[in-house]
């Protein structure tokens, strides 16, 4: 397998396109699952529903509640998709990464934490109880998934001996990391759902708080938040492929296609998981995160460290 290299400057433009394509695919798949649960036939309109919903939100009026902090709200709204694209910059597509930073893993983590601030601002800024509650629910969730998430990333970095994502991919030449770091992989998938406030981790936008952070956003603002959430999920799926599933390695097909296929598979798995579960209550999940996930991921890191040192 050819080693991953730094792409030309123009490859940066490819990142939002690839990520957007993945995100659209994921959203369509979610609509298909919805339609099947509803007992409707899966038609072209169902598959294109994310696109038509985008059109609908583009023409919808933006609104603002009185005495809202529009500067903070709009900043937060814009930051969500921006953070997703920035995080995906370090993901290698086949053997080209738009920006193969020497600290790619830390960069990914930092950009994904930007969502904390973004959602908080988007919720707080609307001057609505629902938004406020949604905002700090997400922070509670962040504090419970972030440490296991970091330990999973650290485990991968330890296994590869580098924080550079391309080195991680190269280190999986013989054996995919998912094989000997299953706990880290599971923790990463859990946090992938959590960081994109999707599926069982959608307390920040739950129906029990009338949409939470989303409650008062309409029109373009809402579109950016929803699109950003799908982009984040797609970015996390693509990163999971680079970190655990051998990146673009695979027979016959070109490496970039393998990356896309594997990312789509991981994304599909995540979307299916989120359709099968009820929302995890944060008062319950905090304890699981700290009492179960952190020790498990620490143990996984220890095992990997011992194997590497041996």
């Amino acid at each position: 397998m050819t080693p991953v290299g730094q792409g030309a400057v123009w490859t940066v433009l490819l990142v939002p396109i690839l990520l957007g394509g993945l995100a659209l695919g994921g959203a369509s798949f979610a609509r298909v699952l919805d339609a099947r649960a509803d007992g409707r036939r899966v038609t072209g309109a169902v598959l294109a529903a994310p696109l038509s919903a985008t059109g609908r939100l583009l023409v919808q009026q933006r609104r603002a509640v009185v005495a809202s902090d529009r500067l903070l709200a709009r900043t937060g709204v814009v930051l969500v998709p921006v953070a997703a694209v920035l995080a995906a910059l370090v993901v290698p597509w086949g053997n080209v990464a738009a920006s193969d930073l020497s600290v790619g893993i830390v960069w990914f983590n930092a950009m994904e934490v930007v969502t904390w601030a973004a959602l908080w601002m988007a919720g707080w800024g609307t001057n609505s109880v629902w938004g406020l509650v949604g905002g700090y629910r997400f922070v509670v969730q962040g504090l419970s998934y972030e440490l296991p998430h970091m330990f999973a990333l650290i485990t991968v970095a330890t296994g590869a001996g580098s924080l550079r994502v391309s080195d991680v991919v190269a280190a999986q030449d013989g054996l995919w990391f998912v094989v000997w770091m299953p706990v880290a992989f599971a923790a990463f998938l859990i946090s992938a759902l959590a960081l994109s406030f999707a599926g069982p981790f959608d307390t920040a936008t739950g129906r029990d708080v009338a949409g939470g952070v989303l409650a008062e956003h309409s029109g373009v603002d809402r579109l950016l938040l929803l699109a950003g959430r799908w982009l984040l999920l797609a970015a996390a799926a693509a990163m999971a492929v680079a970190l655990f599933l051998g990146g673009g390695s695979g027979p016959l097909l070109p490496t970039w296609l393998w990356t896309v296929l594997k990312s789509a598979a991981v994304l599909g798995l995540l979307v299916w998981l989120r359709s099968r579960t009820a929302t995890l209550r944060m008062d319950r999940f905090v304890e699981v995160g700290w009492m179960v996930l952190i020790p498990l991921t620490l143990l996984q890191a220890l095992v990997v460290a011992v194997v590497v040192l041996r």
Binding site: A35, D38, G39, R40, A45, V46, A49, R56, Q60, R63, W130, R207, A210, G211, L214, A215, E216, H217, S218, R222
Partner: peptide
């Protein structure tokens, strides 16, 4: 709504 695939909104901002 279910037969036509119309979604149920969570808040006034979400609805048309």
């Amino acid at each position: 709504m279910r037969e036509r695939g119309w979604e149920s909104a969570a808040s006034p901002a979400d609805a048309d």
